[in-house]
Deep mutational scan, measured.
Amino acid sequence: NRRVIAMPSVRKWAREKGVDIRLVQGTGKNGRVLKEDIDAFLAG
Results as ranks from 00 to 15, higher is better:
Gly28Trp: 01
Arg15Tyr: 13
Ile5Glu: 08
Asp37Cys: 01
Ile38Trp: 02
Leu34Ile: 11
Ile21Pro: 03
Ala40Tyr: 10
Lys29Gly: 08
Asp20Gln: 05
Arg22Leu: 09
Glu36Cys: 10
Thr27His: 06
Lys12Met: 08
Leu34Tyr: 07
Lys29Phe: 12
Pro8Ile: 09
Arg11Ser: 04
Asp37Tyr: 02
Gly18Arg: 08
Arg2Glu: 10
Thr27Leu: 03
Val4Pro: 10
Val33Asn: 01
Leu42Met: 11
Ile38Lys: 00
Lys29Trp: 11
Arg15Val: 14
Gly31Ser: 06
Gly31Pro: 01
Asp37Asn: 06
Lys12Ile: 09
Leu23Cys: 06
Lys17Met: 14
Ala43Tyr: 11
Trp13Lys: 06
Gln25Thr: 14
Lys17His: 15
Ile21Asn: 00
Glu16Val: 12
Ala14Cys: 05
Gly28Cys: 03
Arg32Phe: 06
Ala6Ile: 07
Val4Ser: 05
Asn1Lys: 12
Glu36His: 13
Leu34Ser: 08
Leu23Ile: 10
Asp39Ile: 09
Ala40Lys: 14
Ile38Leu: 05
Leu42Thr: 07
Val4Gln: 06
Ala14Ile: 02
Ile38Tyr: 00
Arg32Thr: 07
Val24Ser: 00
Ile5Lys: 09
Ala43Ser: 12
Lys29Arg: 13
Ile5Arg: 09
Gly26Glu: 01
Gly31Met: 05
Val4Asn: 05
Lys29Asn: 10
Gly31Asp: 05
Gly26Gln: 02
Glu16Gly: 06
Asp20Ala: 05
Met7Val: 13
Glu16His: 11
Glu16Pro: 01
Asn1Leu: 09
Lys35Gly: 04
Val19Tyr: 01
Gly31Phe: 06
Phe41Val: 07
Gly18Ile: 03
Met7Gly: 15
Arg3Thr: 13
Ala6Val: 06
Lys17Tyr: 06
Gly44Met: 15
Ala43Trp: 10
Arg22Ala: 09
Ala6His: 04
Gly44His: 14
Lys17Ile: 08
Arg32Ser: 10
Lys17Leu: 14
Ile21Leu: 09
Arg22Tyr: 11
Asp39Glu: 11
Arg11Asp: 04
Asp37Arg: 01
Leu34Arg: 10
Met7Ile: 10
Thr27Phe: 03
Ile38Ser: 00
Gly26His: 03
Arg22Thr: 12
Val10Met: 03
Arg22Glu: 09
Lys35Val: 07
Val4Asp: 05
Ile21Glu: 01
Gly18Val: 03
Ala40Arg: 14
Pro8Glu: 09
Pro8Gly: 09
Arg11Pro: 03
Lys12Val: 07
Arg32Gln: 13
Asn1Cys: 15
Lys12Trp: 09
Asp20Ile: 04
Arg15Trp: 13
Arg15Met: 12
Gln25Gly: 07
Ser9Val: 08
Ala40Pro: 02
Val19Ile: 10
Ala40Glu: 10
Pro8Leu: 11
Lys29Met: 11
Lys12His: 08
Arg3Gln: 14
Val24Gly: 00
Asn30Ala: 11
Asn1Ala: 11
Asp37Trp: 03
Ser9Phe: 09
Trp13Phe: 15
Leu23Glu: 11
Pro8Ala: 13
Gly28Pro: 00
Phe41Arg: 04
Val33Gln: 02
Arg11Gln: 07
Val10Arg: 01
Ala6Lys: 03
Pro8His: 10
Arg3Phe: 11
Ile21Cys: 00
Ala40Asn: 14
Asp20His: 04
Asp37Gly: 00
Val19Ala: 04
Ile5Trp: 08
Gly28Asn: 01
Val19Gly: 00
Thr27Arg: 06
Val33Ala: 02
Arg32Trp: 09
Lys12Asp: 08
Val19Gln: 01
Arg11Thr: 05
Asp37Pro: 00
Ala40His: 12
Asp39Pro: 02
Gly28Lys: 01
Ala43Cys: 12
Ala43Asp: 11
Leu23Val: 10
Ile5Thr: 09
Arg32Ala: 14
Gly44Pro: 09
Arg11Leu: 09
Phe41Ala: 07
Ile5Leu: 13
Arg32Gly: 06
Lys35Asn: 04
Val33Arg: 01
Asp39Leu: 08
Gly44Glu: 15
Arg11Tyr: 10
Gly28Tyr: 01
Asp20Val: 04
Lys29His: 13
Met7Arg: 15
Met7Asn: 15
Lys35Arg: 12
Leu42Gly: 05
Met7Phe: 15
Lys29Gln: 12
Ala40Gly: 08
Ala43Glu: 13
Lys35Ile: 09
Met7Thr: 15
Leu34Val: 08
Asn30Ser: 10
Arg3Val: 15
Ile5Gly: 04
Val19His: 01
Ala14Ser: 04
Arg11Gly: 03
Ala14Asn: 01
Lys12Leu: 10
Val33Leu: 04
Glu16Phe: 11
Ala14Glu: 01
Ala43Arg: 14
Gly26Tyr: 02
Val19Glu: 00
Leu23Pro: 01
Arg2Phe: 09
Arg3Met: 10
Ala40Asp: 12
Glu36Ala: 15
Gly26Cys: 02
Arg2Leu: 13
Arg15Ala: 12
Asn1Arg: 08
Gly26Met: 01
Lys12Ala: 12
Gly26Ser: 04
Leu23Gln: 13
Val19Thr: 03
Lys17Thr: 09
Val10Trp: 02
Arg11His: 09
Gly44Ala: 15
Arg22Lys: 12
Ala14Thr: 01
Arg32Glu: 15
Met7Leu: 15
Gly26Phe: 02
Ile21Asp: 00
Val33Gly: 00
Val10Gln: 02
Val4Lys: 06
Arg15Leu: 13
Ala43Asn: 12
Val4Cys: 04
Lys29Val: 13
Asp20Tyr: 04
Arg15Asn: 11
Lys35Glu: 04
Ile38Asp: 00
Ala6Gly: 04
Lys35His: 08
Lys17Val: 12
Gly44Phe: 15
Arg2Met: 10
Leu23Met: 14
Gly31Ala: 05
Gln25His: 14
Asn1His: 14
Val4Phe: 05
Glu36Ser: 14
Val24Trp: 01
Ile5Val: 13
Trp13Val: 08
Trp13Ser: 05
Val19Leu: 06
Gly31Lys: 07
Arg32Pro: 00
Gln25Leu: 13
Gly31Asn: 08
Val10Ala: 06
Met7Ser: 15
Pro8Val: 08
Pro8Trp: 09
Phe41Asp: 03
Lys35Met: 11
Ile38Gly: 00
Val33Pro: 01
Val10Ser: 03
Gly31Val: 02
Leu23Tyr: 11
Arg32His: 08
Lys12Gln: 11
Gly44Thr: 15
